[in-house]
Design a binder for these strands. Structure first.
Lengths: 221, 221
DNA sequence: TAGATTGTTAATCGATTAACAATC
DNA sequence: TAGATTGTTAATCGATTAACAATC
């Protein structure tokens, strides 16, 4: 077994941005791209881009750069976006609906095969081609279908209970979109979408920006 | 002017989690907490927690720890969650609606005062107590009200055009929830909610987990 | 060939962790 | 007082940036 090459988390975060940029390039008809160009547009150091891309195992050619399509395939493979895992989504409120509607999601490596909601009026309907089932079916269906990914989009109050249910259904990785710290068994993976962290960064950057800082020093002027 | 004390970005990301945890503690009736306890529950090194908290300027007492309420106030102040900036939201689809409905948002330092949508049928209605206006009014109203924060929740195709509009409206910081790299003037701040980055981390962690790794080595067994 | 670009190895920088002194 | 906890200073670790060799 090869040493489990440690992947820096920042690299993992940047790769989807590279991918998104590449798909735009592709849409615009380009089929070659240099690391320097990507670095420029995305505001990342060019050596950084090279290192990140190197992690995916892709190879560029001196003088011409990388082939866009090759690069995209390399990233897909590296992020496991190719072998399409199946996922359940729980909580068909506006956030859940937004994710279900989001076509581009399939491209990101997972296919939502069913959604669940506690509201019995929602059961039996569907969003796009994803059926909405009563929450009571989650446990059995999860076990039967060997689903390993759960997307949690319920309100904060029911987040923990939902996580417990997912665990009981045999789900091994929870993508948590509720702003709550979940408690799960040690072998279950939880990845939180830190939405407030992102907003906090925005506020801080705004407060630190020259114009705003000025306003703070001379309030009311 | 004091040297603009550099705040590590990871610290900024962690503070909202601390805050969320503290508000739960408070709800449960606790009013003291130790850094060690927070570290334990949130899975962060205890020295890290102390350093992060120290940045907010709070002070704990040996033997007893920190007062929960003080800590929350310190974080609020540090993240500028107290002086409630006003924000516009553009794109009242399911994601926009989710944000508008999300009560807890006010606590995170911004008040959405108006929402805009290109669909004329939505204009005139409202979500919660936020009025939805036609996109044509964005420019003037933004300038008139001196709005500095724009929340962008339109589909990827119209993201860039929306960003341009926000800039024209005098908005200085854009919170971008569309998976697109925006191009804006250098003095405009863009903070992207990297939703796919988060999901990519989940997939990678799942693929690296012992059970899954096993499956990969002996496929089909 | 000359030049642009890749990819790697070394140096720097910043964040995390460890050790410890201060204090209630 | 003794012990728990804070807060700070020093050591480590990992990611970023710089320098450079390889190659089409």
């Amino acid at each position: 077994m090869p040493a489990p090459q440690a992947v820096p988390i920042p690299t993992l975060r940047r790769l989807p941005r590279y991918y998104q940029f590449l798909s735009r390039l592709q849409g615009a008809g380009h089929d070659q791209v240099s690391a320097a160009h990507m670095a420029e547009v995305l505001g990342v150091h060019h050596t950084q881009v090279r290192k990140d891309l190197a992690m995916t195992g892709c190879q560029g050619r001196p003088k011409t750069g990388h082939r866009v399509a090759d690069l995209m395939r390399a990233i897909e493979g590296f992020l496991h976006w190719d072998n399409q895992s199946e996922a359940f989504l729980v909580g068909v409120g506006s956030l859940g609906t937004a994710l279900l509607n989001y076509r581009g999601f399939e491209r990101a490596g997972a296919r939502i095969v069913a959604a669940f909601d506690a509201d019995p009026r929602k059961a039996g309907t569907s969003v796009g081609d994803v059926p909405i089932l009563p929450i009571e079916k989650l446990r059995d269906l999860g076990r039967r279908m060997h689903i390993s990914i759960g997307i949690l989009t319920v309100p904060p109050e029911s987040a923990q209970a939902t996580a417990d249910l997912m665990v009981a259904a045999g789900i091994r990785a929870i993508w948590n979109l509720a702003p709550v710290t979940l408690e799960v068994p040690p072998d279950v993976i939880v990845e939180n979408l830190e939405i407030f962290a992102s907003f906090a960064l925005l506020l801080r950057r705004l407060a630190d920006s020259p114009v705003e800082a000025e306003a703070e020093v001379h309030p009311g002027l």
